[in-house]
Design a protein around this nucleic acid. Structure first.
Lengths: 217, 217, 217, 217
DNA sequence: GATGAATGAGAGTTCATTCAT
DNA sequence: TATGAATGAACTCTCATTCAT
């Protein structure tokens, strides 16, 4: 992807009319399809416009440059994931840690399974195109949600639960990807859920028991 | 980067004169620098050649196409990581699991720290360019090494240690990346090592104690 | 010219606005000029675009690759020749052979004279670039037309007039080229017409008289 | 083929030593093979050198540029054809025209058959690369030989036999090529010989009888 | 608002040729 | 004399983006 030096601006125009909304949706859908089918190479504004059934000029009326297209998609996808995770955290905050952690794991795995191919394609796309800022922002949001829920459930202040939250979030990401690469059949997914729950719970328990006797350290 | 279907062939010409060995090294070094500085966009064969101080023709005498440049680098980097991990596994195979797992964690973190910027840049680069095949291959190699060492240390057959190995390997990857994104100062790195060791050890212990009483499950 | 195996596809885009029709004509005209002036070497898409007064991008919007440029021209030129020959054949079919053959000769020479330089340049160009398929196709078309007219005028079935048709067509091609190479002044052209008519007529007459007494052979 | 502006110079060095001769022969043979196999595109000095088993530097020691390679081959091939034709003309000069003309036809067809593939490849190659000068020169030589023999056999001065000679020579070229394109099986070749002989003889006879009564014209 | 023709910088790659070894 | 590493101009083609209609 040719990286122009322009800052990644938000969509140029906020669709207000009905028709515009349809157009924008068609464009984003086309973006998604092409990214999944062909990856970031072979991804061109021209193809997106044609697939969306609009002219290239129209596309540029709603998305000021190529990057914005990918950004919109990445953001939309990650927002959904974050939202689900936050909801889970809010729903389970205050419950026993093991229950909380297991809930988080399942929410995370579920959100990946929802859009398997898109997840993989976006992951690669996000690395390029400077979308890593978005990735960082949403990662932070997830860690924040986990950290808060953890603090609520354990009684520890958030300053302390921050790091374990990062560890939990980090553990889920690549293990899930790895298992999907292994084939991702239902049985493997089930194993993933169980092992991930076990891994996260035992880690949190270890960490908790260590917190109880900090003097020894 | 255009991912054509052409196979990522090995360097086109094996240097025979000493002069050309220097040239090849210069090209690889330039590839690395530009990838780190500017990412996969803005990465062009032209820039690489100029940075390496050779003509574009010379570059193409040793690397048949652009992809091969990135491949060479990814492969070289991952091979080093794999080698270190394998060495650690071999050295610690048969020792108590906790010692083994801690050793693996430290080896992994060390290899990332060795080339911090390069690691990040290559990670992104590898996602595109079809180098994901290489990534998969080397991941498998790591999981294999971990799995074998785990089998040796626990007495369980490798068929059983396979999945936990994948979980361990997966856990290390993104957590490390996440912490480096957080800034990666020495103190954070230290925390990472401790938490990662704790996470991995407690997971393996949980898993072991579950294995002992499979009937109850 | 690199003859890749990609099929010589038809122009990429059919002009819909009037503006683009002009553009396409300008490009074909430029192709013709450059081919005539400089031959197939020194023929580059860049030069064509510049000569046509359009950007290189515009050129590629209508011609998917370099070969298509030459193909279009070859085809257009040969089609005109074939059409003229077919018209002549149809008009003279049924008339005495001598009249028919003389008509064919003149039609052929006329079509060459119409675009003297272009004919020479295209001839060379067609040999390369895989346009030889087009050459073969149009040659066949000419031979077919001649063969049919010959059958009609002589009463022999077409299976028998086929070969003489090829001989007639073949005789005209290089002799005309040869005479043009000699300078091609009006007097030479006139001699060419006369000798070619004589050559073709006497050949057909010989062949006819041989057909009448096949037993003796 | 990139046309450099340099004049087409003769081979740089005349091989005097045994070894050099072998090298030069190997290079010419490689040129021939590659031209036949792959045509004028994909023909590169590099490939020729590799095929000939010599270094690119050595190639340039005997052939100052790429064109010279093709020239040598074209010249060598056409010289052989011309020589054969001249020999035939000398041998048959003074014999009855029909015998002469038939001999010429067979000599011409034979020389084409000798190197069928090479003939086709060279024909295309000669059109490009400015070798057309050579083609013209050797064509002239053939026409000259035919013209002289015709003069000798008919008693007419050479100024008069010149044009018929061109017509005869021209008739043979494309008809032969055309028949080879048709498949060129032995039966077709035999037909070609017969029809070509008939065509040429009847033409010459017509021309002769016209010469006898010029007043009527 | 929508269209699509036009733009042109820039990318990847080739290959004839030179020259130090 | 032979080698082959190095050169770089030239070439084909793409694609993000603009703007007249």
């Amino acid at each position: 992807m040719r990286s122009t030096t322009k800052p990644a601006s938000r969509p140029r125009k906020t669709p207000i009319q009905e028709r515009s909304t349809i157009t924008v949706e068609a464009i984003i859908e086309a973006t998604s399809q092409i990214l999944v089918e062909s990856g970031l190479d072979r991804f061109s504004t021209d193809r997106v416009a044609r697939r969306a059934g609009v002219s290239i000029g129209t596309l540029y009326q709603y998305f000021p440059n190529k990057e914005t297209l990918v950004y919109s998609l990445v953001e939309r996808y990650l927002d959904a994931r974050d939202q689900a995770l936050e909801d889970t955290c809010k729903a389970l905050a205050g419950r026993p840690v093991e229950e909380l952690v297991t809930g988080i794991v399942n929410s995370y795995v579920d959100s990946k399974l929802d859009h398997i191919e898109l997840a993989a394609a976006l992951y690669a796309a996000a690395m390029e195109t400077g979308a890593s800022a978005i990735v960082k922002r949403t990662s932070d949001r997830c860690c924040q949600a986990i950290s808060e829920a953890l603090a609520y459930s354990t009684g520890y202040p958030e300053t302390i639960t921050k790091f374990p939250a990062v560890m939990l979030f980090g553990s889920m990401g690549q293990t899930t990807r790895e298992v999907l690469l292994l084939g991702g059949n239902p049985q493997q997914i089930q194993s993933l859920r169980e092992h991930l729950a076990m891994l996260c719970c035992s880690y949190i328990n270890s960490w908790l028991s260590e917190q109880e006797r900090p003097a020894k350290q």
